[in-house]
Structures are given as C-alpha cells and as structure tokens.
Amino acid sequence: MVTRKVVIKNPTGLHLRPAGNLCKVAMNYKSHITFMYGQNSANAKSVLSVLGACIKCGDELEFKCEGPDEQEALDALVAAIESGLGE
C-alpha cells in the first residue's frame, strides 16, 4: 500500500467535471484506490463518492492505493490533481 497527501488547487473544488476526470484516471488502474478527507474515506473510482465528499479548493486529501499497480496509480492521480484535472 502506498499513500500520499495532495492539496486541491481547482478554484471551484471537485465539482462534476474534475471529479469525473479524477475517476477516469483512477479507473485506468487495477489497484483499490481510496482517499481520506477529514475523518471520511471515499472510493476514488466512484464519481458519486468524490462528489459526496464536497471537496473545495485548498482541501487536503490523502490517497491510498493498494494493488499490483499501486505506485503508478498514485503517481498518475497526483499528477492529474496538480495539473488541475482538466480545468
């Protein structure tokens, strides 16, 4: 299992479009991918879970990846978030 914390930079947070882009990246990997936000955890492959977390600009998420391609998945997720998730 690998983990990393990342801060959301999107000015409007993770609304539908960036949440969908995050899920698309996560679904490219076989690993189980979740993130912690406060005391809650959510499935990074589920748009509803990501939207339900109500993540805003400046919020810190801790991603946890576990599986055969965990490091590649984590690196791709962090790169996608740091690039703004298409926004």
Rank of each mutant, 00 (worst) to 15 (best):
M1C: 03
T3N: 10
T3Q: 14
T3I: 05
T3K: 14
R4K: 13
V6H: 00
I8Q: 03
I8L: 10
K9H: 04
P11M: 09
G13K: 06
L14S: 00
L14C: 03
H15I: 08
H15L: 08
H15V: 07
L16V: 06
A19T: 05
G20Y: 11
G20E: 13
N21K: 13
L22T: 03
L22E: 08
C23T: 12
V25F: 03
V25H: 04
V25G: 10
V25Q: 09
M27R: 15
N28H: 09
Y29S: 01
K30I: 03
S31E: 08
H32W: 07
H32G: 07
H32N: 15
I33T: 06
M36N: 09
G38R: 12
Q39V: 07
S41K: 14
N43C: 06
A44V: 05
K45P: 05
V47Q: 10
L48W: 02
S49I: 05
V50Q: 10
V50E: 13
L51A: 08
G52T: 08
G52H: 07
A53M: 15
A53H: 01
I55G: 06
K56Q: 14
K56M: 12
C57K: 15
C57G: 09
E60M: 13
E60A: 14
L61I: 02
E62G: 03
F63C: 06
C65A: 10
E66L: 08
E66Y: 01
P68A: 15
P68R: 13
A73Y: 00
A76G: 01
A76D: 15
A76W: 00
A76I: 01
V78P: 03
A79I: 04
A79L: 13
A80C: 08
A80K: 07
S83W: 10
S83I: 09
G86R: 05
G86N: 06
